[in-house]
Each structure stands twice: as structure tokens, then as C-alpha cells.
Amino acid sequence: MSYEPIFDELADTRFTLNNGSGNLPAVGFGTLFENPAVTTEVVTHALQNGYRHFDCAERFRNEEQVGIALHAFIEAGKARREEVFITTKLWNTNHRPERVLPAFEASCRRLQVDYIDCYLIHTPFAFQPGDDLYPRDVFGHVLYDSGVTLIETWRALEGLVDEGRCRSIGLSDITLEALKDIVAVARIKPAVVQIESHPYLPEWELLEFCRQHGIIVVAFAPLGHGMAPNVLEEPVITGIARRLQKTPAQVALAWSVQRGVAFLTTSATLSHIQENRDISTLPHRAMQEIRQDISTRVRFNSVVETGVPVFIPQQK
């Protein structure tokens, strides 16, 4: 059975960046794949199906394959570079200021772009500098770098904005407390904060703080990463989906955009790529139900505690 998407304007929502450098498409596509060999083909499918916001990272080790897809699509005249919002991230081993520019330029080369729309600090945790993504001691413990502070790394990112190499900068996998510390002293305020968020982890307090400061929140794992307890099996979500003749995923993703949060989904399956952009505006009643009637609270990824991204299954 072929999938025939029907879009309303919600799928094309864009959020304005606080530094006047453009806007970010609310519907985003993540590029971390279990099999990196599929990257170019899958990103091409996403572009063909209307995605214009791509989330990349040095740590994903496939920026070059993403770049091939983006470059070919733009060179073919199917989109202008300024229509495609490209985010990538500085990994934990490159937090020292002198390592930021070389890491940034390497990402630009791999992605085949002259500028990055948004450059994020992947986590607030600095690891020992070097080529090993996860430097560890003989006992397997991550080796952190006490010789650099987050604000020092942030100052280096501010320099990238000053030079026009980067349109905006932000933070990822950060707690509200750590975000407040940066906002208090930053010369260039964060434009974007990327965090885990879904109906089981709505992060209302962090979202409110970001609203007050004009910061866009981008949710990763907006569907709960398929883990237990499963967001897509939540009775409130499935009930709304039945009423509206949408899938539970489409309900959860529409909820995200309507509450002002951009999202990233990742799939190598064409039908899911299409489904995740086929979102429609939810009735006010449905938005209230999701906020008031879902009591489960789960964080699936412990990266905010260690700087090491890892999804950990939970049980009700």
C-alpha cells in the first residue's frame, strides 16, 4: 500500500532565530543511522519528501555522506542552500578553544558547505582532547578534561559567529541549570537548545525559560526512541490518534510543534520518513489531554549526566 501524505501548514512551521539570522524548520531530520552506509540515500529521500532541516554531528562519523546528498540536491537546483538549515555539533574532545575552529572547518569540508546554520556544543562535558571519541582509563572510565570550562568553549563559538562562518550557535544535552549559567554570561546568547523531549519528558520549565530568552528548543527522541514505556502506546496518544485518524507518531510530533518545540526524527524507512512529516494541527482539547492526562515521566538518555549518549530502557 503506497503512502499518500496530506500536509497542512503545521509541517511547514518555521521558528525565528533570536539573533536575526533566519529561521529554523520545526520538522527536522536526524542523521545518526545504525548503518552509516545508508546515509546518502536516506538523506536524499528526506530532501525529496520536503525536509529542509538536517541535524548532523562530528560524532556521527557520516558528515561526508550527508554532504554528498545535500550538495547533489542543491547543485541539481532542487533547493537553494539558504532554504536548507544545517546543524552540526562540536564533540566533547574538542572543547579546548584552540580545537574549536579546526573541528568546525573539518565539519564544513565534510558537509561541503561554506557556512553552518547552527553549531552546537554536543554536550556540556569536555573529554580529554585527542582523536579517540571516548577516551577512557584502564578501568573503562571516561577521561574528562578539567582544563577547560564550558564558557571558554562558548567564547570560541561566539568567535565563529563574529567571523560569519556560523549563523547561530547553541547547546545540546544540557540541563536548565547549566543553560542558565551560560545565558547569564554569554555575549551571543544561545539561539538553539537541543534536548531529549517527548510526552513522557515535556521539560516545561526549560521550555518556559527558553521562551523568555527567545531560544528555540529542538527535541530529539520526540517519539521516545521506541523504548519502554512506549510513548506510541500511551493510551492518551492512541486515543487521540483514533479520533483524528492519524498515527500515534503524528499526534506526538504535532503536539511538539504546536507547543513551540522543533523536533528531529530519524528513519531509514521511506514510509516513516513520509509519515513523520505528515502532521496536522491538533484540536485544543487534544493538546490539553496530552499535558494534563499523561503522568508518566521518563528520561531515556542519560547523556545529561555523563556526556556519553546512551539510551537506557525503563519500565513502568
Rank of each mutant, 00 (worst) to 15 (best):
M1F: 03
M1A: 10
P5L: 01
P5M: 01
A11K: 09
D12N: 15
F15N: 08
N18T: 05
N18F: 02
G20I: 05
G28T: 08
E34S: 14
L47T: 01
H53R: 13
H53E: 09
A57V: 10
A57P: 04
E58W: 08
N62Y: 00
E63F: 02
E63R: 00
E63G: 05
Q65D: 13
A69F: 10
A72Q: 15
F73R: 04
A76H: 09
G77K: 00
G77C: 04
K78A: 08
R80P: 10
E83W: 12
V84H: 04
T88K: 07
N92V: 01
T93P: 12
N94Y: 12
N94D: 14
H95P: 03
P97I: 07
P97V: 14
V100R: 06
L101M: 14
A103G: 11
A103D: 01
A103C: 10
C108K: 14
L111V: 04
Y115H: 05
C118G: 08
C118K: 05
T123S: 15
P124T: 08
A126W: 00
F127M: 06
D131F: 02
D137F: 13
F139A: 11
F139S: 10
V142A: 07
L143I: 13
L143E: 04
S146R: 05
V148H: 07
T153Q: 02
T153I: 02
W154R: 06
L157P: 07
L157N: 04
L160W: 01
V161H: 01
D162P: 03
S168K: 02
S168Q: 05
L171C: 07
I174V: 12
I174K: 01
A178Q: 13
D181N: 10
V183K: 02
A184H: 08
A186R: 07
I188N: 00
K189A: 12
K189S: 03
P190C: 00
E196N: 04
H198M: 11
E203Q: 15
E203Y: 11
E203M: 12
E205L: 02
E205C: 00
L206S: 01
L207H: 14
C210F: 01
Q212K: 14
G214T: 06
I215D: 00
I216V: 13
I216P: 00
I216N: 00
G226Q: 06
P229K: 09
T238Y: 04
G239D: 07
I240C: 01
I240W: 06
I240F: 10
R242Q: 14
K246N: 10
T247A: 08
P248Y: 10
Q250L: 03
L253V: 09
V257H: 07
Q258V: 06
R259Y: 15
G260W: 03
G260P: 07
A262V: 12
L270C: 06
S271I: 09
N276H: 13
N276F: 05
S280W: 03
L282Q: 03
M287K: 07
M287W: 02
E289S: 12
Q292R: 15
D293L: 09
T296I: 15
R299G: 03
N301Y: 08
N301T: 13
V303E: 03
V303C: 11
E305P: 05
P309F: 05
I312N: 10
I312A: 05
P313S: 09
P313W: 10
Q314I: 02
